[in-house]
């Protein structure tokens, strides 16, 4: 259930249930914090490379040759 929450795929009831549970359960609270931090760190710190110049043009040229 933790991953459903972290990944934004839990239902409202599941979110409520888990939030309530976390208040009393330190291991779950900490696990949630860590998993969320890892996900956010991946998203924030792994750069997206720009596409190489000419890639789109080269694809379009090849496609024009096939039609």
């Amino acid at each position: 259930m933790l991953y459903l929450i972290i990944d934004g795929q839990a239902s409202e009831d599941q979110i409520k249930e888990f939030s309530k549970h976390m208040k009393d359960c330190t291991p779950c609270y900490k696990h949630h914090e860590l998993e969320q931090a890892i996900k956010q760190t991946l998203q924030a710190k792994i750069d997206n490379r720009p596409i190489p110049p000419g890639l789109i043009e080269s694809i379009k040229t090849k496609i024009r040759e096939t039609v």
Binding site: N48, R49, I51
Partner: peptide
């Protein structure tokens, strides 16, 4: 429009 995600 998805080409950058695809390339990455």
């Amino acid at each position: 429009p998805h080409i950058r995600s695809m390339y990455n």
